[in-house]
Amino acid sequence: MKATLWVTRYDARPCREDIASRTGMTMIELAALSEHGAHESAVVNVAPLLRIKKLVKRYGPKTVLHGVDLDIPAGRVVALIGASGSGKSTLLRCVNYLEVPEPGSEIWLDGELIGQDARSTPPRLLQGAALRRQRSQIGMVFQHFNLFPNLTALENITEAPLAHRRATKAEARMQAQALLDQVGLHDKAASYPSQLSGGQQQRVAIARALAMKPRLMLFDEVTSALDPELVDEVLKVMLQLAQDGMTMVVVTHEMAFAAEVADRVVYMDQGRIIEDGPPGSILRNPRHPRTQAFLKRMLRTG
Protein backbone atom coordinates (compact mmCIF):
# COMPACT_ATOMS: atom_id res chain seq x y z
CA MET A 1 0.00 0.00 0.00
CA LYS A 2 1.33 3.40 -0.89
CA ALA A 3 0.49 6.03 1.67
CA THR A 4 -0.38 9.47 0.47
CA LEU A 5 2.25 12.07 1.00
CA TRP A 6 1.24 13.59 4.30
CA VAL A 7 3.06 16.85 4.01
CA THR A 8 3.75 19.12 1.13
CA ARG A 9 4.40 22.49 2.74
CA TYR A 10 5.62 23.47 6.17
CA ASP A 11 5.38 26.90 7.77
CA ALA A 12 4.98 29.07 4.71
CA ARG A 13 7.02 32.18 4.23
CA PRO A 14 4.94 35.33 4.49
CA CYS A 15 3.88 35.87 0.96
CA ARG A 16 4.98 39.10 -0.60
CA GLU A 17 1.57 40.08 -1.93
CA ASP A 18 0.14 39.63 1.53
CA ILE A 19 2.76 41.90 3.05
CA ALA A 20 2.24 44.47 0.30
CA SER A 21 -1.45 44.65 1.10
CA ARG A 22 -0.76 44.93 4.82
CA THR A 23 1.89 47.64 4.59
CA GLY A 24 0.70 49.54 1.58
CA MET A 25 4.11 49.14 -0.03
CA THR A 26 4.43 48.33 -3.66
CA MET A 27 5.80 45.00 -4.77
CA ILE A 28 8.78 46.76 -6.30
CA GLU A 29 9.62 48.52 -3.04
CA LEU A 30 9.41 45.23 -1.22
CA ALA A 31 11.61 43.48 -3.73
CA ALA A 32 14.16 46.28 -3.40
CA LEU A 33 14.14 45.96 0.39
CA SER A 34 14.57 42.23 0.06
CA GLU A 35 17.55 42.72 -2.26
CA HIS A 36 19.17 44.83 0.42
CA GLY A 37 18.93 42.00 2.89
CA ALA A 38 15.86 43.20 4.75
CA HIS A 39 13.31 40.49 5.32
CA GLU A 40 9.70 40.92 4.43
CA SER A 41 8.67 39.67 7.82
CA ALA A 42 10.73 42.40 9.47
CA VAL A 43 8.85 44.96 7.43
CA VAL A 44 5.49 43.94 8.88
CA ASN A 45 7.03 43.38 12.27
CA VAL A 46 6.10 39.70 12.37
CA ALA A 47 7.93 37.96 15.21
CA PRO A 48 10.54 35.54 13.87
CA LEU A 49 9.88 31.82 14.27
CA LEU A 50 13.17 31.40 16.13
CA ARG A 51 14.58 34.20 18.24
CA ILE A 52 17.88 33.73 20.03
CA LYS A 53 18.64 36.46 22.55
CA LYS A 54 21.84 37.07 24.50
CA LEU A 55 22.80 33.42 24.29
CA VAL A 56 25.74 32.75 26.58
CA LYS A 57 27.27 29.32 27.17
CA ARG A 58 30.25 28.48 29.33
CA TYR A 59 32.09 25.24 29.95
CA GLY A 60 33.80 25.83 33.27
CA PRO A 61 35.94 28.94 32.90
CA LYS A 62 35.74 28.85 29.08
CA THR A 63 33.03 30.92 27.40
CA VAL A 64 32.03 29.33 24.11
CA LEU A 65 29.11 31.64 23.22
CA HIS A 66 29.40 35.34 24.01
CA GLY A 67 25.81 36.60 24.02
CA VAL A 68 24.67 35.58 20.54
CA ASP A 69 21.56 37.20 19.02
CA LEU A 70 19.91 35.63 16.01
CA ASP A 71 16.42 35.94 14.51
CA ILE A 72 15.15 33.49 11.96
CA PRO A 73 11.79 34.07 10.26
CA ALA A 74 9.58 31.13 9.33
CA GLY A 75 10.52 29.34 6.16
CA ARG A 76 14.10 30.53 6.12
CA VAL A 77 17.18 28.38 5.75
CA VAL A 78 20.17 29.68 7.66
CA ALA A 79 23.60 28.15 7.18
CA LEU A 80 25.89 28.44 10.19
CA ILE A 81 29.52 28.30 9.15
CA GLY A 82 32.78 28.69 10.99
CA ALA A 83 35.90 26.85 12.06
CA SER A 84 35.60 23.98 14.53
CA GLY A 85 35.42 25.39 18.02
CA SER A 86 33.67 28.54 16.83
CA GLY A 87 30.58 27.59 18.85
CA LYS A 88 28.21 26.84 15.97
CA SER A 89 27.33 23.32 17.10
CA THR A 90 26.97 24.48 20.70
CA LEU A 91 24.59 27.20 19.52
CA LEU A 92 22.50 24.58 17.75
CA ARG A 93 22.42 22.33 20.82
CA CYS A 94 21.36 25.27 22.99
CA VAL A 95 18.30 25.87 20.80
CA ASN A 96 16.63 22.65 22.03
CA TYR A 97 18.40 22.71 25.39
CA LEU A 98 20.57 19.66 24.76
CA GLU A 99 23.06 22.09 26.23
CA VAL A 100 21.70 24.35 28.94
CA PRO A 101 22.68 27.98 28.30
CA GLU A 102 23.67 30.37 31.07
CA PRO A 103 20.90 32.23 32.95
CA GLY A 104 19.76 35.30 31.05
CA SER A 105 19.94 33.57 27.67
CA GLU A 106 16.65 33.28 25.84
CA ILE A 107 15.49 30.98 23.07
CA TRP A 108 12.05 31.75 21.67
CA LEU A 109 10.23 29.48 19.25
CA ASP A 110 7.13 31.10 17.78
CA GLY A 111 6.64 33.25 20.86
CA GLU A 112 7.25 30.44 23.35
CA LEU A 113 10.25 30.56 25.67
CA ILE A 114 12.16 27.30 25.26
CA GLY A 115 13.70 25.42 28.19
CA GLN A 116 12.60 27.91 30.82
CA ASP A 117 9.37 28.66 32.59
CA ALA A 118 8.48 32.21 31.53
CA ARG A 119 5.98 32.57 34.40
CA SER A 120 8.58 32.36 37.16
CA THR A 121 11.09 35.12 37.89
CA PRO A 122 13.89 34.46 37.42
CA PRO A 123 12.85 31.85 34.84
CA ARG A 124 13.17 28.34 36.23
CA LEU A 125 14.64 25.62 33.99
CA LEU A 126 11.94 23.45 32.48
CA GLN A 127 12.17 19.71 33.16
CA GLY A 128 10.27 16.58 32.37
CA ALA A 129 7.19 16.53 30.20
CA ALA A 130 7.10 20.28 29.54
CA LEU A 131 10.63 20.27 28.15
CA ARG A 132 9.98 17.06 26.20
CA ARG A 133 6.94 18.64 24.55
CA GLN A 134 8.97 21.67 23.49
CA ARG A 135 11.79 19.55 22.16
CA SER A 136 9.36 17.50 20.11
CA GLN A 137 8.58 20.65 18.08
CA ILE A 138 12.22 20.99 17.10
CA GLY A 139 13.67 18.32 14.85
CA MET A 140 17.36 17.61 15.16
CA VAL A 141 19.70 15.65 12.93
CA PHE A 142 23.14 14.70 14.19
CA GLN A 143 26.55 14.27 12.62
CA HIS A 144 26.66 10.60 13.62
CA PHE A 145 22.96 9.94 12.88
CA ASN A 146 22.32 8.51 16.37
CA LEU A 147 19.69 6.14 15.06
CA PHE A 148 18.50 3.50 17.52
CA PRO A 149 20.45 0.42 16.34
CA ASN A 150 18.04 -2.05 17.95
CA LEU A 151 15.05 -0.71 16.04
CA THR A 152 14.25 -0.93 12.33
CA ALA A 153 14.21 2.18 10.13
CA LEU A 154 10.42 2.29 10.42
CA GLU A 155 10.46 1.81 14.21
CA ASN A 156 13.05 4.55 14.55
CA ILE A 157 10.60 6.91 12.85
CA THR A 158 7.45 5.80 14.67
CA GLU A 159 9.06 5.87 18.11
CA ALA A 160 8.56 9.56 18.90
CA PRO A 161 4.99 9.94 17.55
CA LEU A 162 3.98 6.84 19.54
CA ALA A 163 5.76 8.02 22.68
CA HIS A 164 4.01 11.38 22.45
CA ARG A 165 0.68 9.67 21.68
CA ARG A 166 0.37 11.68 18.50
CA ALA A 167 -0.81 8.73 16.47
CA THR A 168 -2.14 5.22 16.65
CA LYS A 169 0.24 2.44 15.68
CA ALA A 170 -1.30 2.17 12.24
CA GLU A 171 -1.22 5.91 11.61
CA ALA A 172 2.35 6.18 12.81
CA ARG A 173 3.44 3.35 10.53
CA MET A 174 1.67 4.88 7.56
CA GLN A 175 3.23 8.28 8.21
CA ALA A 176 6.67 6.68 8.69
CA GLN A 177 6.32 4.85 5.38
CA ALA A 178 5.38 8.14 3.70
CA LEU A 179 8.44 9.79 5.22
CA LEU A 180 10.65 6.93 4.02
CA ASP A 181 9.19 7.46 0.53
CA GLN A 182 9.96 11.16 0.85
CA VAL A 183 13.63 10.53 1.64
CA GLY A 184 13.88 7.90 -1.08
CA LEU A 185 13.99 4.82 1.13
CA HIS A 186 10.58 3.26 0.56
CA ASP A 187 12.02 -0.28 0.53
CA LYS A 188 14.12 0.06 3.71
CA ALA A 189 11.36 0.09 6.35
CA ALA A 190 12.39 -3.26 7.82
CA SER A 191 16.13 -2.66 7.67
CA TYR A 192 18.16 -2.15 10.80
CA PRO A 193 20.55 0.84 10.80
CA SER A 194 23.55 -1.49 10.62
CA GLN A 195 22.23 -2.76 7.27
CA LEU A 196 22.11 0.74 5.76
CA SER A 197 24.84 2.93 4.30
CA GLY A 198 25.78 6.15 6.07
CA GLY A 199 23.78 8.23 3.62
CA GLN A 200 20.74 6.01 4.05
CA GLN A 201 21.06 6.13 7.83
CA GLN A 202 21.21 9.90 7.76
CA ARG A 203 18.10 10.06 5.57
CA VAL A 204 16.28 7.81 8.06
CA ALA A 205 17.45 10.18 10.80
CA ILE A 206 15.95 13.13 8.90
CA ALA A 207 12.70 11.21 8.48
CA ARG A 208 12.74 10.40 12.21
CA ALA A 209 13.12 14.09 13.06
CA LEU A 210 10.30 15.01 10.65
CA ALA A 211 7.90 12.49 12.16
CA MET A 212 7.01 14.88 14.97
CA LYS A 213 6.07 17.52 12.36
CA PRO A 214 8.55 19.99 13.83
CA ARG A 215 8.34 23.70 13.18
CA LEU A 216 12.08 24.02 13.06
CA MET A 217 14.80 21.64 11.91
CA LEU A 218 18.36 21.72 13.24
CA PHE A 219 21.12 20.05 11.21
CA ASP A 220 24.43 19.54 12.99
CA GLU A 221 27.15 18.81 10.40
CA VAL A 222 24.98 16.06 9.03
CA THR A 223 27.27 15.21 6.11
CA SER A 224 30.61 15.44 7.92
CA ALA A 225 30.72 11.75 8.85
CA LEU A 226 29.70 10.54 5.39
CA ASP A 227 31.84 9.18 2.58
CA PRO A 228 32.03 11.86 -0.13
CA GLU A 229 29.92 9.90 -2.60
CA LEU A 230 27.06 9.68 -0.06
CA VAL A 231 26.88 13.39 0.72
CA ASP A 232 24.70 14.39 -2.23
CA GLU A 233 21.79 12.06 -1.47
CA VAL A 234 21.47 13.66 1.98
CA LEU A 235 21.82 17.23 0.69
CA LYS A 236 19.14 16.50 -1.90
CA VAL A 237 16.66 15.57 0.82
CA MET A 238 17.54 18.76 2.70
CA LEU A 239 17.14 20.86 -0.44
CA GLN A 240 13.68 19.39 -1.00
CA LEU A 241 12.80 20.15 2.61
CA ALA A 242 13.93 23.75 2.17
CA GLN A 243 11.86 24.09 -0.98
CA ASP A 244 8.85 22.76 0.92
CA GLY A 245 9.21 25.75 3.23
CA MET A 246 10.75 24.17 6.32
CA THR A 247 12.60 26.54 8.64
CA MET A 248 16.11 25.19 8.94
CA VAL A 249 19.31 26.00 10.80
CA VAL A 250 22.14 24.12 9.15
CA VAL A 251 25.61 23.87 10.65
CA THR A 252 27.70 22.86 7.66
CA HIS A 253 31.05 22.76 5.97
CA GLU A 254 29.39 22.34 2.58
CA MET A 255 29.88 25.82 1.14
CA ALA A 256 28.28 24.86 -2.16
CA PHE A 257 25.17 23.71 -0.31
CA ALA A 258 25.12 26.88 1.76
CA ALA A 259 25.39 28.96 -1.41
CA GLU A 260 22.63 27.08 -3.18
CA VAL A 261 20.07 26.43 -0.45
CA ALA A 262 20.53 28.95 2.34
CA ASP A 263 18.72 32.28 2.40
CA ARG A 264 21.29 33.51 4.81
CA VAL A 265 24.79 32.59 5.84
CA VAL A 266 25.98 33.29 9.37
CA TYR A 267 29.72 33.15 10.00
CA MET A 268 30.77 32.47 13.59
CA ASP A 269 34.17 32.82 15.18
CA GLN A 270 35.15 32.31 18.82
CA GLY A 271 31.58 32.29 20.06
CA ARG A 272 30.42 35.37 18.21
CA ILE A 273 28.57 36.09 14.99
CA ILE A 274 31.05 37.94 12.79
CA GLU A 275 29.06 38.20 9.58
CA ASP A 276 25.46 37.59 8.66
CA GLY A 277 23.91 38.08 5.27
CA PRO A 278 22.78 36.54 2.00
CA PRO A 279 25.05 33.74 0.78
CA GLY A 280 26.11 35.70 -2.28
CA SER A 281 27.68 38.49 -0.28
CA ILE A 282 29.11 36.40 2.58
CA LEU A 283 30.60 33.64 0.49
CA ARG A 284 31.79 35.74 -2.43
CA ASN A 285 32.56 39.11 -0.83
CA PRO A 286 33.26 38.53 2.84
CA ARG A 287 34.11 41.79 4.55
CA HIS A 288 35.64 40.59 7.77
CA PRO A 289 39.28 39.41 7.53
CA ARG A 290 38.52 36.31 9.62
CA THR A 291 35.67 35.32 7.29
CA GLN A 292 38.00 35.83 4.34
CA ALA A 293 40.68 33.66 5.94
CA PHE A 294 38.15 30.95 6.81
CA LEU A 295 36.69 30.81 3.32
CA LYS A 296 40.16 30.72 1.80
CA ARG A 297 40.97 27.70 3.98
CA MET A 298 37.70 26.02 3.04
CA LEU A 299 38.36 26.51 -0.65
CA ARG A 300 41.85 25.09 -0.34
CA THR A 301 40.80 21.96 1.54
CA GLY A 302 37.28 21.48 0.27
Partner: peptide, 20 residues
Protein backbone atom coordinates in the same frame (compact mmCIF):
# COMPACT_ATOMS: atom_id res chain seq x y z
CA UNK B 1 24.61 9.97 20.99
CA UNK B 2 21.65 7.76 21.88
CA UNK B 3 20.91 9.97 24.88
CA UNK B 4 21.13 13.05 22.66
CA UNK B 5 18.66 11.51 20.20
CA UNK B 6 16.31 10.50 23.03
CA UNK B 7 16.40 14.03 24.43
CA UNK B 8 15.96 15.69 21.04
CA UNK B 9 12.92 13.53 20.28
CA UNK B 10 11.53 14.16 23.75
CA UNK B 11 11.11 10.46 24.57
CA UNK B 12 9.93 9.92 28.15
CA UNK B 13 12.54 8.21 30.36
CA UNK B 14 10.71 4.96 31.04
CA UNK B 15 9.93 4.39 27.38
CA UNK B 16 13.46 5.34 26.38
CA UNK B 17 14.84 2.74 28.80
CA UNK B 18 12.48 0.03 27.66
CA UNK B 19 12.67 0.61 23.93
CA UNK B 20 16.16 1.98 23.37
Amino acid sequence: GQHAAIAALGLPPFRAYRRV
